[in-house]
Design a protein around this nucleic acid. Structure first.
Lengths: 317, 317
DNA sequence: CGGTTACCAGAACGGATGTTCAACTCATGG
DNA sequence: CCATGAGTTGAACATCCGTTCTGGTAACCG
């Protein structure tokens, strides 16, 4: 992190006085490329903040349509791109806006497993909120972390918000039901889970049953997957698999999970799903239709697929 | 003014989601050029606001140098450009920042004659301040208005700030001292001038004696100019000419002016000079050195010339 | 002391953006 | 019904900006 002052100067000269990168470079004795980089840094780090004074979202109609169809509290939609990473970034940006709107200045936010929530972190530029806490609502897995472990998400989000963070020291999926019970009995684990259960806001991904669609699904063995599907599972929220009616599928896998149950999750008043992509549509549609989640952050393509899926359901059901 | 909503959408897609003008055009069914224009409008009109979270000004040292040399309260400096209109725009932008910092939410701002103050108007995007008033501190001239008549400046600035505006219905320079006295005796004129005299903040230009440097100076006849110079005039603030010591030069011209006197001007606690250009340096330097003005908004070139002039004075005087 | 790694810098390229200009639309008034 | 002019439009151009790639520098290590 270089001198904040230089970034501010360059940003002022460019954004306020309309000087070109070239001109600023000549004025301050820097190369044009250096100026370009300083400006990019300044935007990334939040030194430059761009506000748009207009309540209109670019995808208003689609948002309103989803709110109506599924009876949701609120919906945020980002544009879709051919490049999936770019879409992820836009969804992350939109998720950050959603959090800015929903996160209270005190209280607790429960954070679930999600590849998309990770994309939010770089877009958060908030005032420190020391009376706020971010709590993982389930355990994590070992080995290499792909940036989407619940504990890591809670930690990074919490840090970005200048809030307290909590840890749930257990695996998300224990090897046996008995081992899971033992973990849940641990005082540290129990305490964190109680805190998560009492949260005001839940933010989590919704996974599908397709191996490409979830993080968790490919942690499970082939036979376990087949078993879940056989029991009617259509998706999961942080390892809690649910069927087409939004009920827990139960079974052995469910008993091995260390984390909030579906009932505990739905007891949290505000529940935001952050999820996008064609493989997620079915699971996401179910989670929204059955009320497991009551808000969603997604991209245009997924949103369109959701409305389509919803109307198909209506006709056939 | 087209639908604010469309501007907001386009701005969000570009500034928040990083979409190119081309992509936005395709998404919304607009041409690329149209998108470019919408974005430019959005910035001009303040729908897009860019904040820089850094207190550092690009020309800190120079500002500090002027504050020190002349014992000023504060100084704002804009970059200089080869294209004078661009410089004027930058100074205007900087003046708007200055006003944002200084203008109270209630009270009165006295507005003097200035070509530069006009450049401020397009850069003001403030919350309406209905308890604030903008008052011209002198009369105006007839015929074509080049956008820098005191009454016009007060009106346009006041409008931009959503504030009350006042009018001083008289010429800035009456044809005879007696006519001027008659104007001053008018109840409407007297009332407005009293209001201006009680202002908290004064914002005005500082004119020089060179015909190219002032608006007013070329309204006067050749002989009147010569007379003023002979009496030691080095510059003026809204038609009040002063000498190298900062005192009024008096004389017939001074008696024909309808507007606050130099003594009345300097009774206003906060006095900002907005002025730039090589022809203004001498007058501006005098106004600052003698304390007629105690703040200044100018450009880099003028600022450098001011520090140089000040050190020359110190050596010789 | 050479090798390695990590980082930083600027040349060069290709895409993005801003501006100019000629064509067009649509009122208004003869 | 055409003439006029103000206001829009997008094609074409000129500039600006972002990224990639290569070379350089410094720190760390064997």
């Amino acid at each position: 992190m270089e001198s904040r002052e230089l970034h501010g100067r360059v940003a002022r000269l460019h954004y306020q006085h309309g000087m070109t990168h070239q001109e600023i470079g000549e004025l301050l004795g820097l190369s044009r490329v250096k100026v370009t980089r300083l400006l990019a840094d300044a935007r990334r780090s939040g030194i430059v903040e761009i506000r748009i004074h207009s309540s209109a979202s670019p995808f208003d109609e689609l948002e309103a349509a989803l709110v109506g169809r599924f009876g949701l509290q609120q919906v945020w939609i980002a544009p879709s791109f051919a490049d999936e990473r770019r879409t992820a970034d836009s969804v992350g940006m939109t998720g950050a806006q959603c959090l800015r709107a929903l996160v209270p200045t005190s209280g607790t936010v429960a954070v679930g497993l999600s590849s998309s929530v990770a994309a939010i972190v770089p877009h958060v530029h908030a005032e420190p909120a020391p009376d706020l806490g971010f709590v993982p609502l389930a355990g994590s897995w070992g080995g290499i972390s792909r940036g989407m472990n619940p504990h890591e998400l809670a930690l990074r989000l919490g840090t970005a918000f200048g809030a307290r963070t909590y840890h749930l020291p257990a695996p998300i999926l224990a090897s046996t039901p008995e081992a899971a019970a033992a973990f849940r009995a641990d005082p540290g684990v129990r305490e964190t889970m109680q805190l998560a259960a009492g949260a005001d806001l839940l933010i989590a991904g919704v996974g599908g049953m397709d191996p490409r669609s979830g993080i968790l699904i490919d942690v499970l063995g082939r036979s376990e997957q087949r078993q879940l599907v056989a029991n009617g599972a259509v998706g999961d929220i942080s390892a809690r698999f649910f069927d087409a009616a939004g009920h827990s599928v139960g079974g052995e896998v469910d008993e091995r999970v260390v984390g909030l149950s579906l009932d505990e999750l739905t007891a949290i008043p505000h529940r935001v799903a952050v999820s996008f992509g064609p493989h997620k549509v079915h699971a996401l549609e179910t989670a929204l239709r059955t009320g497991l989640m009551n808000m969603v952050v997604t991209d245009v393509d997924t949103a369109k697929a959701l409305t389509k899926a919803a109307s198909d359901n209506r006709k056939s059901g």
